[in-house]
């Protein structure tokens, strides 16, 4: 998946975060730290499940963690890897 294709994931990721993240996402940049913005580790469960549903992927154990859900950018990167 090219950089452009990765960029196309961002609006959907934002939508999932807005629906399931339980914190305000409107003003976040793609690099902002989601945990600093209010994402809790428990809320990442809902976010992850919704991402799996939306993108038809499954996060393996090694991608379930703080590093993956750190920012919109890192989520997009993980999904790109999974969909490749």
């Amino acid at each position: 998946m090219s950089e452009n294709e990765r960029k196309t994931l961002v609006p959907d990721i934002r939508e999932v975060l807005a629906q399931h993240g339980r914190f305000p996402v409107e003003n976040l940049t793609e690099a902002d730290d989601l945990y600093n913005a209010g994402l809790t580790s428990l809320a990442t469960v809902a976010v992850m499940l919704a991402l799996e549903d939306k993108f038809n992927v499954e996060f393996p154990d090694n991608l379930i963690g703080r590093r993956t859900f750190k920012s919109i950018e890192s989520i997009a990167e993980a999904i790109t890897k999974l969909a490749a």
Binding site: L42, L49, F59, D61, I64
Partner: peptide, 13 residues
């Protein structure tokens, strides 16, 4: 309920 939520993604290793 918290454990139930976490167990959706956590696997005993």
């Amino acid at each position: 309920k918290l454990n139930a939520t976490m167990l959706l993604v956590h696997k005993e290793g």
